[in-house]
Nucleic acid binder design. Structure first.
Lengths: 161, 161
DNA sequence: GAAATAACATACTATTTTTGTCAACTTTAA
DNA sequence: TTAAAGTTGACAAAAATAGTATGTTATTTC
């Protein structure tokens, strides 16, 4: 798994979207201004997010983007995966013959690290970040997805501490 | 924390070094050929590794690099940290005023993720990878560092499963 | 239907990663 | 003491990636 600023921007933008997507779609121009991310870059990122069915778009005046499904059903891993495309961590993309004698020494390490990171990022939903942002103190109950086990950031942090 | 191919290369090279550093130093030319990493790049990376006191160099014929301390005392996090230098995950490097209204929304997320990854990468020692590579089956006992809690990859995986 | 708005698409620039080349400098061995 | 093997460092070029600018098309509103 790759972890760069690209994914960070995408997550930031998605939070903004979730935070403001109550009535009607949100225009990228607004996100750009609020989050200080260039409009062009956002357009690129949202193209990918749209192709990965995380957001839906409405063209024309009053248009913009909205989440394709409830924020509780979108994990951070989904977002990272969408914008960072390939995402393979093993260098020898699956095939085992990357080395002559001892096939791909670091294979196991990266695979395990990859799993760890996905495990974590999958456990954090967009919704949990948004409620965290809304400063809705009081450990807002977790809304879990049908596919995944999604915890709030607060709970996750508690587990670590 | 940033996770790119750069760190991957560094770890791969360090494994090779640990694997062959029994009698005398290991030349980069050998690592380059075995791991298919350009010699120039390795030289750059090992310059950083040396400045971070992870390896020592011996010049002249028969020279090369050797680990500055036992492989059990070097974690993967050490290596990543050495080659990726800055390593800050929060975008608003410490200062809280990255946003006007709601200061740096994703701040908490990235900080927590950062901790998670470090926690994991610190728990994996170079030695554990090497023993794993040597195919020394039978759960080779853990040699723990004086500073850290270092587990074997095998044990770590068991915890996750 | 014209004008404005905003997504969509493509081309371009800048930064980072990776490789290549060259010139010291150091130590061992012949 | 010379030569060879090897590190160290400084650049620069090439490739990949990140980020920006510009143009085009679809919708809505007036």
């Amino acid at each position: 798994m790759r972890l760069t600023t690209k994914g960070r921007f995408a997550v930031t933008a998605m939070i903004d979207l979730a935070l403001r997507g109550h009535d009607g779609p949100v225009a990228l121009a607004g996100i750009s201004e609020r989050q200080k991310i260039s409009l062009s870059y956002l357009e690129q990122l949202f193209g990918k997010l749209r192709r990965h069915n995380l957001v839906e778009s409405v063209r024309g005046p009053g248009g913009g983007y909205s989440l394709a499904r409830p924020a509780a059903g979108i994990s951070i891993a989904d977002i990272i995966r969408a914008v960072d495309e390939p995402l393979d961590a093993t260098q020898c993309h699956g095939r085992e013959n990357c080395q002559e004698d001892h096939r791909c020494m670091t294979h196991d390490l990266w695979a395990t690290l990859n799993d760890k990171m996905y495990e974590y990022l999958t456990s954090v939903s967009l919704d949990s970040l948004v409620s965290n942002e809304r400063k809705s103190v009081g450990a807002t109950a977790v809304v879990s997805d049908q596919r995944r086990n999604v915890r709030t950031l607060r709970e996750e942090a508690a587990l670590t501490a």
